[in-house]
Structure formats: structure tokens, C-alpha cells
Amino acid sequence: MAITIKDVAKAAQVAPSTVSRVAADHPSISYETKKRVRKIMEEMGYHPNVNARSLANQSTQAIGIVMKSSADKALQNPFFPEVLRGISSVAHEQDYSLYVSTGETEAEVYESVQRMVFGKRVDGLILLYSQIDDRVTKFLLEQDFCFVLVGKPYEHADRITHVDNDNFTASYDITWELIHKGHEHIAFIGGDSNLVVTLNRLRGYEEALAKAGLPIRDDYHIHAELLKSGGREAVHQLFQLDEPPSGLVIADDLMSIGVITMLEEKGIKVPEDVSIVSFNNLYMSEISRPPLTTVDIQIYELGYQAAKCLIDKVNNKQEPSKRVIVPYEVVHRQSSRERRKPLHL
């Protein structure tokens, strides 16, 4: 016979309502009582009925996660599994399930979000992107639906809880790494130009060049998918120029791997001929050849903080909007060096 809430209450010598509140992690129950009742629940093999509890609380106990691109493309980049790991850690602690939404087009992503909101499938959403004039963000604001952005909002930053790095300063710092090493011809390889993170990193790169009195060249700005293929395409464009760059600021480590591979095919060595600095400090950054100098943006922490903020908002509708800035660190490795000679192709 299945163990019931009354069985647990009897064994713990508390009321059934107390057991229910412990299962829901209600703040009115002391830590000591929660610990004692949970131990008995575990010993007796009791599992709360999440569906019943959700109906009673008018809660789905689910978080929706929205990615801008299809799962096939997004999950090729280790950024997404790592940020999902951070989100999952909090969700598991708070007994929330995850509902991941993707789409091949922006219209598909928008329709998927509408289904989640109008179908009451989730209590709140985490958007793993921030872009210019985003329909999804505007829709969620109009619906007054709980959501959190991983990234800086393009507008209405005071109304939107968001978790981000200081991407402008991080990009300034990593670009200055190359300038300090004597590089004067430095290109920027970024992702989608509609993404706010790309714009902030581009601004930081340009500010560093301006500070050093170096020219800002439009032909040194390349935007491609944050994948290895995007990095390969960027090399084709940059190294056909009459004056190719000696340094590259690349917005993602996975793109950097594609760049290094393509440069090798062209007989161009990193860092002897071209120095590379990058972003994200993905697991392959340290084992690439050469290991990448990169900005560690603490991807896991971005996901963890986003989930924590969202659940706080779900539990308290009056929770004010927050801006959480996760610190970054420049990790120095062997993909950049002092400029010694011009590159002749």
C-alpha cells in the first residue's frame, strides 16, 4: 500500500498540513522541522503528489527555458549545456521541472512562448538571449508574465530582471591584451549583430582601439553564427584583405576553434602569425592547440542566478526587478603573443 501524507504526519507527530508545507518548502516551517520531516519522508519512501500540489497552489512547478535558435544548433555550443546545468541545479533544489523551448525561426520561438504562457504550462520563463526589438520580451511585459533574461535588456532594463556580465568592460580588457602586445591591426568576430551581447562586446573592442588611437575599420568587423563553421567563414573574409589582421577578438570559444582550424589550413600559425583572444572559457579552451586566452564569464553561475531570480519572482509577485552582474576573469593562455613581424600571405 502506498504511503500517504497522513502516515508521514503520524510518524513525525505533526499535522498533515505541516507535511504538505514541508514538501512545498514553505517559509513558515522551521529548518529543524523540515529536516526531521524530510528524513521521515525519505525513510518511509513517501513522494509528494506534485500535480495535486500544483493544482492547489495554481502552480505548474515548471520553468520554461527559451533559446533563440533550434536545439540542434544551440546545443552544439557548450555554453548552453553549461548554463542549463546552472539552472537545473536550482530547479532541482526547489523541486521545479524544466521545459525547454526552441525554434528554427523567430516566429516559431514566439509561438512556442505564447503556447507556454496561454496554456499555463510554466510558472515563469528564462530567456537565454537578449536582442534588439524582441517580440518575445515585449509580449511577456504586456502579459505581465514572470521572466528573467540572461543578458542585458535592449530596453526597459528597469522593468526586467536580468543576469549578465559587464560585457563592455570585458571586451575592452581582452582587446587591450592584444594592444598591449603591440598589435595594431585587430579584427572583431562576433555573433548575430541583433544580439545585445554582441553589440556590447563590439563597443568594448572599439573603445579599446579608440583609447589606443588605432583605426576602427568596418572590414575588420565580422558577424557569424557562434559555431565552428562561423569561425571558418570569418577567416575566409578577413584573410583575403590586402591588410589582414594580426590579432583577433572572437566572441565565443567555439568560433575560435573554427578560426584556428581554418588558419592552419591556410598555413597561418597561432600565435606566431596571428594572436587570438576569446570569450566564455568553455571546456575546450584549455585543451585546444594552442590553449585559448579567454574571458571566463562563469556560465554556470549565470544559469544559477537566473533560476534563483525567477523562482524568487514566482514566489513573490511583488519582488522588484533586479540586475545581477556576474564577475568575469581574463584567463591567460598561449593563443596570443607579442607582435613581431608583419603577416605576408
Rank of each mutant, 00 (worst) to 15 (best):
F147L: 07
V277L: 03
R339F: 14
I65M: 07
Y283V: 07
S288H: 06
Y172K: 10
V83F: 00
S171F: 00
A12F: 05
R217Q: 15
E106L: 08
G231E: 01
A306T: 04
N165W: 02
A15G: 12
H47P: 08
A210P: 02
L241D: 05
L140N: 03
I65L: 10
V113A: 07
I297V: 12
I3E: 10
P78C: 08
V314D: 02
G45V: 07
V109I: 14
W176P: 01
P342F: 10
V163S: 00
Y99F: 15
Y172T: 05
L238S: 07
G267C: 06
L141S: 01
Y172H: 12
P81W: 08
Y129C: 04
Y129W: 11
Q143L: 11
S321A: 14
P244E: 11
G247M: 03
L140W: 06
D296Y: 08
V277K: 01
S256G: 05
Q240L: 11
V295Q: 06
S278K: 00
K10D: 10
C309W: 04
P291T: 00
A224W: 01
Q76P: 01
K138I: 11
P290N: 09
T102K: 03
Q305W: 13
R232T: 09
L226G: 03
N280T: 12
V66R: 00
L178S: 00
R201L: 09
I287T: 05
P48T: 04
I222H: 03
R339E: 11
N165L: 05
F145A: 05
K73H: 09
G119W: 08
P320Q: 14
I174D: 00
T198Y: 06
P153K: 00
T169D: 15
D173E: 15
